[in-house]
Write a protein that binds this DNA or RNA. Sequence first.
RNA 1: GGGCGAAUGGCUCAGCGGUAGAGCACUUGCUUCACAAGCAAGGGGUCACAGGUUCGAUUCCUGUUUCGCCCACCA
Length: 862
Amino acid sequence: MDLNTVYSPKEVENEIYDFWIKEKIFKAEIKEGVTPYTIVMPPPNVTGSLHLGHAYNSTIQDIMIRFKKMNGFESLWLPGVDHAGIATQIMVENDIMKENLTKEKLGREEFLKRVWDWKEKYGDRIVNQQKRLGIYADWDRHRFTMDSNYQKAVIKAFVKLYNDNLIYKGEYMINWCPVCKTALSDLEVEHIEEKTKLYFIKYPFKNDDGGIIVATTRPETMLGDTAVAVNPNDERYKNLIGKILILPLVGREIPLISDSEVDMEFGTGAVKITPGHDPLDFEIGERNNLQKINILTHDGYINENGGIYKGLSRQEAREKIIKDLNEKGFLVEIKDYFHTIGIHDRCNTPIEPIISKQWFIKMKPLAEEGLKVVREGKVKIIPEKWEKVYENWLTNIKDWCISRQIWWGHRIPVYYCKNCNKMFASENEVTKCPDCGGSVERDPDVLDTWFSSGLWPFATLGWPNETEDLKYFYPTSLLVTAYDILFFWVARMIMFGMYFMKKEPFKHVYIHGLIRDEKGRKMSKTLGNVIDPIEVIDEYGADATRFTFSQLSTLGGQDINLSLVIIKFSRNFMNKIWNSGRFVINFLKDFDKSKKIDLKFKKEDIWILSRLSKVSQLANELIDSYEFGEISNILYEFYWHEFCDWYIELSKLRDDETNKYVLFTVFINSLKLLHPFIPFITEKLYKLTLPDERTILNTDYPKGEDFIFDGKVIEEFEIFMNINKIIRNLKSILNLPLKKKAKVFIDFDEEFLLNWKNKIEFLSFCEITNKKVEDLKNLTEVYKGAKIYLFVEKDYPIEERIDNIKREIENLEKENEILNKRLGNIEFVSKAPVEIIEETKKKKDENEERIKILLIHLKELL
RNA sequence: GGGCGAAUGGCUCAGCGGUAGAGCACUUGCUUCACAAGCAAGGGGUCACAGGUUCGAUUCCUGUUUCGCCCACCA
């Protein structure tokens, strides 16, 4: 067979993926009596493009899906995309700006049409990128959170919550984005530290001289101040409580009140109260019946309540107010100050707390169920540390603001009668009031995107209809996600799953880390350190990319600092697999796989089969416990440094059917073991080896008990390997080329030598003599009782060797001193486990034996 | 303010109650008939610091330092 010596992933990957799609290998079916294994894919944003985080996330899911499929489960991996309300709307708004259009100019209907056009244009991009990774997803079941069925699910969910009194509308302080002009949930606000100023402003008394000095980072909000508050226990102000102050620049009379929430230590201990624009002030205002004045327009400018400052931006107002305060003598001091401000996570605009009428979900009852199901272990979060974080968040949860003043999304199914003012939710679009028949108006707001994503595990399977899919595939088996959306998404899916389905949405949640650049920084466009996974795949291949992720995936779910260099390692491994495949296929070309063979195992056959058995057993255990990094390394080590380095090499000495059978068995089963991690190259080689077979995915994942196991032979083979290493090392000391034959004598068990002599001669390029050659110089080594002599006919530079031996003897003696001390310690001998004591003794004896030999050898050299 | 995580060879990271592992990089020798993206051999680490528990600590506990993250209404 003519196969290139350098593996080129691109052709193979395209060919193999086309084959999988054409043959509908990934199609999941409802199969009576077969246990399903279901994963719903975290839906990327419909307009997004694949980043390394997605690639990592998908790799883990794909490993599990393929592994379970090969273990006899009916694997369903359900893919899809999210409409991503605000994110998408921002993109489209930016796009129409090129035509000098705004969404207001277009109107709601026309704008939404543009968004759908945009979705049509870019919606496939991410799917095509995912396919490059080779993922086993049932594309026929692809879902979009704005599909008409999905819309039905969202409306159904809202109406049920509404009718169960878990959704309410009310006027509360919420996070407002002045650029997106919408309310946001607490989660969508990111907190960043900012260097700013702390301004000290004097508020004079109405009827007395003097006044109170307050400290604030946001002087512009004073336009909305309706009180100043101090702590009731603050001796400095105790007697002044109740006095009336004059609000500078505005002239409003405001009282000095007391509230225990006020921190005496901060600033002057007196705080200005702006109930309209600060959450704490809002509460204090509620407690003290203060007026709440809104001073901002929806796009963040000062409104008519700001008097002469009307029309200024927040920043302009701040500057002008400080200037005016200073001129009029109210500004006492300005200090540098660090504090955190909230910004919108989608557009980075500083958010503004304002009072607004919005829709909320009562979270307490939902959270209780969400907590219960995790506490009871029905949902297991891996690694466990995230359970505490989850618990903590749900325990302190506040009501969730779900209404958004944008257009792209699921419109709230609440109607208002213009005639009798009735407010009601309805699953069907209505035009007339059910009570009075008057005409109705639908609420203009749409729902938070995460409301619809929260329904993902069951809405994608057909809910609210009782579909066969839903019955068979729900609850799903596993959810894989990074920790950054634990609250946004995972917690809400669990709560909604319990509420609507009365059953947990998934049994395991595997939380992994984020992909960062090699310096540990987040990948971002502004930093310019973004690595495009498609470029990585183009250069190194999907298998190498996947193997890298798998190898770096540790159980702790640590973030991964990815440098491109390490993908090379995986690429080299793929190349090794490819070339070993070429060798095996060629070696087996006259081998009839179907023929019964009279097996006559040699030691190395039993060794490699035993190792295959062990590795198969480990693979099953470790994949089931999500230890991908560990098993990746084990498979790498086994394939390259055991199968290729030793078994394949030894095969070159042989020409018998047993060898070919073993070579075939180990090769094919290694491909199966590796398939979930590196699906393309393994499928390709499988089909090249067995042209009549359809796909490796229809085979069973290897189990430990599929192969013979003999631990004694493994030990014996280890001695064999080490003797080879010693001979090679001795040759290397002499600077002898590996292939130059050397004369060697091995003083060891005769039966062992009988078995391995010609193999050592072959692998280490030497000639093993029957007895020690006394008249020649030699280099000597000891391993587990075996003494190995390498004879040297010519003189060679021995000084270095002598130094080395001396140094080694010294080290060994030092070590034995420690070991002797330990063994002489009564506490150690009485308390340490027997194995450890035995090991220590053995180590000591070995060292002594080694010293003895080295001393003799040293004498010979001197 | 609360919580979490990290600190291991030049770099990227595993690991673990019995004196340290991988890949890359480095040094030396190889046109070995699968593979130079390879083969063989090798050098390199007081496992951040200080205490404690233990026969024994890089590993467990406490504290410190540095870095990173999450949550939180201190103006």
